[in-house]
Amino acid sequence: RRRVRAILPYTKVPDTDEISFLKGDMFIVHNELEDGWMWVTNLRTDEQGLIVEDLVEEVG
């Protein structure tokens, strides 16, 4: 499975499927959606939700 790491922190918009995260958080990518969004699991918090790919980098 594809893994990505947050390069910046992010605070979710209330009442959306987004998740908040810290710089350095690792995610497993489940689905890549339109307009650069990804459905992921945050490995630190075990939370699932949407993040935008501009805020993460690939992990080898």
Score class of each variant (00 low, 15 high):
Arg1Gly: 15
Arg1Phe: 15
Arg1Cys: 15
Arg1Ala: 12
Arg2Val: 07
Arg2Phe: 06
Arg2Thr: 07
Arg2Met: 07
Arg2Lys: 10
Arg2Cys: 09
Arg2Asn: 06
Arg2Ala: 06
Arg3Lys: 11
Arg3Leu: 14
Arg3His: 11
Val4Trp: 06
Val4Glu: 00
Val4Ser: 02
Arg5Asn: 04
Arg5Ala: 06
Arg5Ser: 06
Arg5Val: 11
Arg5His: 05
Arg5Met: 11
Ala6Arg: 01
Ala6Phe: 02
Ala6Ser: 07
Ala6Asn: 00
Ala6Tyr: 02
Ala6Gln: 01
Ile7Gly: 03
Ile7Leu: 11
Ile7Glu: 03
Ile7Val: 11
Ile7Trp: 06
Leu8Ile: 10
Leu8Gln: 15
Leu8Tyr: 14
Leu8Ser: 14
Leu8Cys: 13
Leu8Asp: 07
Pro9Val: 06
Pro9Lys: 08
Pro9Met: 08
Pro9Trp: 07
Pro9Tyr: 07
Pro9Ala: 14
Pro9Glu: 11
Pro9Thr: 14
Pro9Leu: 05
Tyr10Gly: 03
Tyr10Asn: 04
Tyr10Met: 04
Tyr10Thr: 02
Tyr10Arg: 05
Tyr10Lys: 05
Tyr10Phe: 05
Tyr10Ile: 02
Thr11Cys: 10
Thr11Gln: 10
Thr11Gly: 05
Thr11Glu: 09
Thr11Asn: 11
Lys12Asp: 03
Lys12Arg: 12
Val13Lys: 14
Val13Thr: 15
Val13Asp: 09
Val13Asn: 13
Val13Pro: 06
Val13Ala: 12
Pro14Arg: 08
Pro14Tyr: 07
Pro14Asp: 10
Pro14Trp: 07
Pro14Ala: 10
Pro14Gln: 09
Asp15Pro: 04
Asp15Gln: 11
Asp15Val: 05
Asp15Ser: 09
Asp15His: 13
Asp15Lys: 09
Thr16Met: 03
Thr16Ile: 02
Thr16Val: 03
Thr16Gln: 03
Thr16Trp: 03
Asp17Pro: 10
Asp17Asn: 13
Asp17Tyr: 12
Asp17Thr: 10
Asp17Cys: 12
Asp17His: 13
Asp17Gly: 10
Asp17Phe: 13
Glu18Trp: 04
Glu18Cys: 06
Glu18Asn: 04
Glu18Ile: 06
Glu18Met: 08
Glu18Ala: 05
Ile19Glu: 00
Ile19Cys: 03
Ile19Met: 06
Ile19Arg: 00
Ile19Gly: 01
Ile19Gln: 01
Ser20Val: 02
Ser20Gln: 03
Ser20Pro: 03
Ser20Gly: 05
Ser20Ala: 04
Ser20Glu: 04
Ser20His: 03
Ser20Cys: 04
Phe21Ala: 03
Phe21Gly: 00
Phe21Leu: 03
Phe21Trp: 03
Phe21Ile: 04
Leu22His: 10
Leu22Ile: 12
Leu22Trp: 11
Leu22Tyr: 09
Lys23Ser: 10
Lys23Trp: 06
Lys23Leu: 10
Lys23Asn: 06
Lys23His: 07
Lys23Cys: 09
Lys23Ala: 14
Gly24Phe: 06
Gly24Ser: 05
Gly24Lys: 03
Gly24Arg: 03
Gly24Ala: 05
Asp25Tyr: 02
Asp25Asn: 00
Asp25Glu: 03
Asp25Leu: 03
Met26Ile: 14
Met26Arg: 06
Met26Cys: 13
Phe27Ser: 00
Phe27Asp: 00
Phe27Arg: 00
Phe27Gly: 00
Ile28Trp: 10
Ile28Gly: 03
Val29Gly: 00
Val29Leu: 05
Val29Arg: 01
Val29Phe: 03
Val29Asp: 00
His30Pro: 00
His30Asn: 07
His30Gly: 05
His30Asp: 07
His30Ser: 06
Asn31Trp: 15
Asn31His: 13
Glu32Phe: 08
Glu32Ile: 11
Glu32Gly: 07
Glu32Gln: 12
Glu32His: 09
Leu33Trp: 12
Leu33Ala: 10
Leu33Ile: 09
Leu33Arg: 13
Glu34Gln: 14
Glu34Lys: 14
Glu34Cys: 14
Glu34Asn: 15
Glu34Gly: 15
Asp35Glu: 11
Asp35Ser: 12
Asp35Lys: 14
Asp35Cys: 14
Asp35Trp: 11
Asp35Gly: 15
Asp35Val: 07
Asp35Pro: 07
Gly36Phe: 04
Gly36Met: 05
Trp37Asn: 06
Trp37Met: 10
Trp37Ala: 06
Trp37Cys: 08
Met38Trp: 06
Met38Tyr: 08
Met38Asn: 03
Met38Pro: 00
Trp39Ser: 04
Trp39Met: 07
Trp39Pro: 00
Val40Ala: 12
Val40Gln: 00
Val40Phe: 00
Val40Met: 00
Val40Cys: 07
Thr41Pro: 00
Thr41Glu: 07
Thr41Ala: 05
Thr41Gly: 03
Thr41Asn: 04
Asn42Pro: 01
Asn42Ala: 10
Asn42Phe: 02
Asn42Lys: 07
Leu43Asn: 05
Arg44Pro: 00
Arg44Tyr: 05
Arg44Leu: 04
Thr45Lys: 03
Thr45Pro: 02
Thr45Asp: 04
Thr45Ala: 03
Thr45Ser: 08
Thr45Val: 03
Asp46Lys: 15
Asp46Thr: 13
Asp46Val: 10
Asp46Glu: 14
Asp46Phe: 15
Glu47Pro: 01
Glu47Ser: 06
Glu47Arg: 06
Glu47Thr: 06
Gln48Pro: 05
Gln48Met: 11
Gln48Cys: 13
Gln48Gly: 05
Gln48Ser: 11
Gly49Phe: 02
Gly49Pro: 00
Gly49Asp: 00
Gly49Arg: 00
Leu50Tyr: 09
Leu50Gly: 04
Leu50Trp: 12
Leu50Asn: 04
Ile51Tyr: 01
Ile51Pro: 00
Ile51Leu: 08
Val52Leu: 15
Val52Ser: 14
Glu53Cys: 12
Glu53Tyr: 14
Glu53Lys: 15
Glu53His: 14
Glu53Arg: 15
Asp54Pro: 06
Asp54Tyr: 14
Asp54Leu: 11
Leu55Pro: 01
Leu55Lys: 11
Val56Lys: 01
Val56Tyr: 03
Val56Leu: 05
Val56Trp: 03
Val56Phe: 04
Val56Pro: 01
Val56Gly: 01
Val56Met: 09
Val56Ser: 04
Glu57His: 06
Glu57Phe: 06
Glu57Ala: 07
Glu57Asp: 06
Glu57Gln: 09
Glu57Tyr: 07
Glu57Ile: 10
Glu58Leu: 08
Glu58His: 09
Glu58Thr: 12
Val59Ser: 07
Val59His: 07
Val59Thr: 08
Val59Arg: 05
Gly60Thr: 14
Gly60Val: 14
Gly60Glu: 13
